[in-house]
Nucleic acid binder design. Sequence first.
DNA 1: CTGTTAGCGCGTTCAG
DNA 2: CTGAACGCGCTAACAG
Lengths: 355, 355
Amino acid sequence: MSRAKRNTNRPARPDIHAVARLARVSIATVSRTINHVATVDPRLAQRVWKAIDTLGYSPNTQARALVSGRSHLLGLIISEITNPFFPELIQGFEDAAVENGYEILISSTNYDPQRMELCIQRMLERKVDGVAVMTFGIEGPLLERLAQRDIPLVFVDVAPKGPLFSTIEVDYYHGIREAVQHLAVLGHRRIGFISGPLHLHSARERQSAFLRAMGEAGLKLTPAWLLEGTHTLEGGIAMMQRLLDSGEAPTAIMTSNDMTAIGVLHSLHKAGARVPDDFSVIGFDDVTIAQFTLPPLTSVQMSRLELARCAVLALRDRLEPQPVSYVPRYKVQTRLTVRQSAGLPATRPFRRANG
Amino acid sequence: MSRAKRNTNRPARPDIHAVARLARVSIATVSRTINHVATVDPRLAQRVWKAIDTLGYSPNTQARALVSGRSHLLGLIISEITNPFFPELIQGFEDAAVENGYEILISSTNYDPQRMELCIQRMLERKVDGVAVMTFGIEGPLLERLAQRDIPLVFVDVAPKGPLFSTIEVDYYHGIREAVQHLAVLGHRRIGFISGPLHLHSARERQSAFLRAMGEAGLKLTPAWLLEGTHTLEGGIAMMQRLLDSGEAPTAIMTSNDMTAIGVLHSLHKAGARVPDDFSVIGFDDVTIAQFTLPPLTSVQMSRLELARCAVLALRDRLEPQPVSYVPRYKVQTRLTVRQSAGLPATRPFRRANG
DNA sequence: CTGTTAGCGCGTTCAG
DNA sequence: CTGAACGCGCTAACAG
């Protein structure tokens, strides 16, 4: 009498027993059918599916996770969701995850290593099957601790060693080279670069890609035009200000991310300079809002959707053994998106209205 | 031998039995201690906590959910994560949820009712305890189907009836009135309004708040200046264009959301008009990027953090009976954020450069 | 190929 | 106030 009679008038969610009863099979057969075990008699399977359909049954994820040890949950750790870089990444991650039968758990660190620990803690408690750490600024010691956990982890750029770690490489050079060449073709010779905080691996990568591209284009570098920003609007404003104050400014400015570029735009606007007539500006990331700036920002894009998809695949590959023929390649490209913030260099040097 | 000896050399996650053994109590006592049942002997509780600490034990969420029927997961359904309105909402939702001991499951509908169904399906399968539907555009028939499910739901603006439904009211009028008055004080008499798609409840609310505020400020309404937009950049561009083409344009334009306002800014820029010298513009939502536009956008803000917090509380109140003294009030305010896109009205009507 | 059975880890009765 | 026993819904052995 334990199970058979429970308040029967309430339309409780049907469980596996209900399906089994209706299909006149055992619960094991129902389980096998659902999990697509090949050795089920098609006729029985048919009955099971029909029963499932008429009852509106869907398996209890919790129970399934409890016994199988696999939650089909993927964690996604990002820096800050209000940073325009991330929403698209999340979108892609969600889509790719759902496509592969996973659900996602997001949390953001707000650039706080301690909070990052909490995020991971929470994820582990929820028994995620794997975690994508997409914060672009993970610290050494933290990595060490992560390495202890025995769940698959995927990172961007940084490549820690460990049997459960994967890395997604970003080919910064490709897009940045396109940008430099774009400027060179327009006639620019004097190009400045405002980098991100150089303690970030990804910021360093972008800067060196820029240096390399300049060299290859045969353009001379002016050290005074190589500035370290902060990947923020304020940083962009300040650094552009400095460039303007220095007397001799470049005709084009490239930046390490779009927020910096937008800061540059603000600085220029305030100084009375016009873009692209007086200065050309090229950003990096091609964040959604880049198309809404005045003028719309020419920017190097790294597909966040692609990045997210790679991350999901990297985790899936650890979780579900793939056929040997499958050779994973976790690499994402960057490309130049041309809009209207870069144009021909000014014929005469810009002079500030109020100076 | 069933449980006692399982591969013992691996440092498996400790379970409740391990804690019980170490604390020399039964697993029931451990369970009670963790769940803060008041009737546990403090001395035993002490031992239990110590054991938990030394073992680094944390309860298995899956098992707990399975047996208790409560997953401590909250669903959040939004329209589109790349819409700048939502990230901050998510942030607030996450924070509030975690504060209250919940984790969140997000999914986005992309304005597709069918996808919305899938989202809900997924959430139900994951056994979320409640769902916040923050899409600002839910359809009647869908609501009907939702009503069947017996889990708490919370909505914005729209107030379906049902014992498990909650509604968060937004006081659009407050902030919109501030905006109209702000313009009136600056000297504007000719104010236009570009609404959102009027089939959306929230768009209608905003529009009627505007109409009411105009009336109260003693300002006359010009029907030709009351346009229906689409809550998109393109809509803003098109409607502003129409205003400009009409020969007699208002000196100030208010919009139903920030994307529309940014479209207006673009339209104006293209026409050679300056903001706020030639036209004043006020947006709605005060999205993060409003501070990055040129000029920074004056906008009516509705605190997304507050909204999110309300949503979490509304769900929690259904889920965990609150003390009778607690009177919930799910209402969020709107306020004007003054930046630089609204100023004194132009002394002479704007004439297009190319016209 | 199918059914029976034993837990997954924990909350919760019900005796003590 | 505590502990033993049961079962949440399901998968994975094992028997038939």
